[in-house]
Amino acid sequence: MKKIMYLIMLPCKKVTELIEKRSLVGLSFKEKIQLHLHKTMCDACTAYQKQSKKIDELLERYIHTSDTNNSGSYQNHELKQKIINNLS
C-alpha cells in the first residue's frame, strides 16, 4: 500500500526535483501525471513551482543584461598595464 501511495503521491523533495528537471530536459508522461497530481494536493509545491519559474526568468534576464552602460567612469589602469605588458 505504501508503495502504491508513493507511486501516486511523490514526496515534496522528489517533486521539486521534477520541477527543475522539467525546465531542463522535460518530463516523461508518468512524471507529468505525478507532478500534476501532487500539485492538486500540495500548495507548498505549487508555490515552489511558481517561484522557481520566476527565478528562472529573473536569472535569464539578469545574465543577458549588460551592466556596462554605467561604465563611463570606471577605469582599471592596473589591468590595462598588465595586459599591455603581457602583449609586448
Binding site: 545574465i63 549588460s66 551592466d67 556596462t68 561604465s71 570606471y74 577605469q75 582599471n76 589591468l79 590595462k80 595586459i83 599591455i84 602583449l87 609586448s88
Partner: peptide
C-alpha cells in the same frame, strides 16, 4: 599589431572587465 592592440586595450578593457565581473 602592438599599437592596434594597445588602442583596443585602452578602448575596451574596462567594459570587458565589468561584463566579466558581472557574470
Amino acid at each position: 599589431t602592438a599599437i592596434v592592440m594597445q588602442s583596443w586595450v585602452e578602448a575596451f578593457s574596462d567594459k570587458m572587465y565589468l561584463w566579466t565581473l558581472y557574470k
